[in-house]
Design a protein around this nucleic acid. Structure first.
Lengths: 343, 343
DNA sequence: CTGAAAGCGCTTACAG
DNA sequence: CTGAAAGCGCTTACAG
């Protein structure tokens, strides 16, 4: 199609210098005279020369690339990615660009033996782990990663004694804020839709915050008001139907994620309940569609923008051999119509 | 942290063979006896060996990687990526994984001199171009890409005589379908919100489809019913306000994208108009939040899933040196509440 | 300030 | 079926 790509030798010939000098000039070494450098730059431009990254990386023993591994729970229908992760992906991409790193994106089946392939094969200098799934099943993989010295950060619940570095939001406070918001409006029997066990620590923290708020208000934490659900609309719909089927009284619904909340609202509507007049509802995440739900969904904002920056910064710090710690990001209750009973 | 990564030489020593044989065995060459191969596989596993991609790629002169360049219009607020592109990104990622390719994701300022850096530097074997922006300004870059033999596909309007390979949906038919849907309900003065010039060919095709449907129905195409807007909610809001300010009569609104439609619906609500009772509205794209808009938004589905597959397949075909052509994907009108006047 | 040379870790003709 | 050797295109100590 077009003649083969120019190499540094071609530039050297054109500029009348050695190949080594071309490399130095282009990498900005101070050992090259301005005059020579200019000549080389011109030659490089003329031949549309670009440093071969494979050769350069091989020599430098690094890649200038970060890998983002997106885990998806295999139980989801697989056709659409959770919008929360998509927006994390957007912010991580931006943060990488800012730092001059490339970002390799990959979906992983939770079952595959993914650990460290990217790092071991030198395709990436470090790894960002993103996604839900059974945390306990995932834990020993993390430990293995730490053991072999792979640099990685993960997004998720930030708990004591975790392997590696984690970045997550303050799920506990978020759960607390939602529960308090309902309690302030006089709700006493607040249902919780979402898994609440150490298998899903993010949801569990939200649940713990919710339970704490109830107890502080002198309210019971009633197990029959909790229904397991993973983060999809369908699960939300199912869980809500399940709750309605139980026949227990409740006066508010706290869904562990926005997708669950949206599914739950649909179930409520199908059963003839009015949100928020009869049942106030709140979610968690503040995905883009939350504000466009009907009614607009009260939720807890996870700031994906700063989350992406913190993830990338922490990882880069580890790559440079600097210390990096786990970090918990603040959340913010976004009160919208779905949770506010008309006066 | 941990000892240096194992190389093929380490494996060779361990397995008692030459380094060349290790390479052959691991690449599945038939020139290696099963017995030897097994021994090597075991040694590799024991040392947790992974082929160094930089070395391998350098030798093989390819990268096994595709680059996705996401252009964003610099006039948007920059904090959030268009959800439509996000879902394209999701589907492209999946398609790449399917084909065993890695995906490098990068945001590009429309102004930067992006062309072919990824390909020239051998970081990627081919490029996928995604994003709006002034098409005319972008055209000569495409031509340059073609000239230097870069393999790429772009998502966008599929027009005659375009440089390179394009994949896009049938915007014309989509626009036509929306207009007809309104006309069937007796609407005569359908406003169009969105740019309608060759600078934005996707919107323009939608507009042309709309105009064609009007003419076929014997209706006027009234220029005062068209308002420029880029694909953001804010622009939609502004455009709708502008239209209302003009004081011209209209009985339906066709927004060139869902984001525009959602912004327009908010403006309509602020001005006291009921959708769809007083003004039916439709959008384009079918982004996830469309069905959760209030009322749920009638729109034109672009099948991002197959779009991603077609983009990746076409690019891979080009990389293999096979012929690849531009392709137009079918669309589907999704009728929801926002466009249907109550009887 | 510049050049000759070694070497990063692979893959694959070439020879056996 | 296996090994010795060349070479992919860089970067950087070493020598001048």
């Amino acid at each position: 199609m077009s003649k083969a790509k120019a190499t540094s030798i071609d530039i050297a010939h054109l500029a009348g210098v050695s190949q080594a000098t071309v490399s130095r000039a282009l990498r900005g070494s101070p050992l090259v005279s301005e005059e020579t450098r200019e000549r080389i730059r011109a030659a490089a431009e003329q031949l549309r020369y670009k440093v071969d990254k494979n050769a350069s990386n091989l020599r430098l023993q690094h890649s200038g690339t970060l890998a983002l591994l997106l885990f998806e729970d295999p139980t989801t229908d697989g056709s659409n990615i959770n919008p929360f992760f998509l927006s994390m992906l957007g912010s991580i991409t931006r943060a990488c660009a800012h730092q001059g790193y490339d970002l390799l994106v990959s979906f992983q089946q939770f079952s595959t033996d993914w650990h460290a392939d990217y790092a071991d094969s030198k395709k990436a200098d470090g790894i960002i782990l993103l996604g839900y799934g059974d945390y306990l099943a995932y834990l020993d993989r993390l430990e293995k990663l730490v053991a072999i010295g792979t640099r990685f950060v993960r997004w998720g619940a930030v708990l004591p004694d975790q392997p590696g570095v984690s970045v997550g939001c303050d799920n506990f406070s978020g759960g607390q804020a939602v529960a308090r918001h309902f309690i302030e409006q006089g709700c006493h029997r607040i249902a919780f839709l979402g898994d609440a066990s150490s298998h899903y620590p993010e949801f569990f923290e939200r649940y713990r915050g919710y339970a704490e708020a109830l107890q502080q208000a002198g309210l019971d934490v009633d197990q029959t008001l909790q229904v397991d659900a993973e983060s999809t609309q369908m699960c939300g719909h199912t869980a809500m139907s399940e709750l309605l089927g139980r026949g227990v009284a409740f006066d508010a619904v706290f869904a562990a994620s926005d997708l669950i909340a949206i599914g739950a609202m649909r179930a409520l509507a199908e059963h003839g309940y009015k949100v928020p007049a009869e049942v106030p509802v709140a979610g968690f995440d503040d995905i883009p569609m939350a504000r466009f739900a009907s009614p607009p969904l009260t939720t807890v904002l996870q700031d994906t923008r700063s989350a992406g920056e913190v993830l990338v910064d922490s990882l880069l710090r580890m790559i440079r051999g600097e210390p990096a710690q786990s970090m918990m990001l603040p959340v913010k209750l976004m009160v919208r119509q779905s949770s506010v009973r008309p006066a």
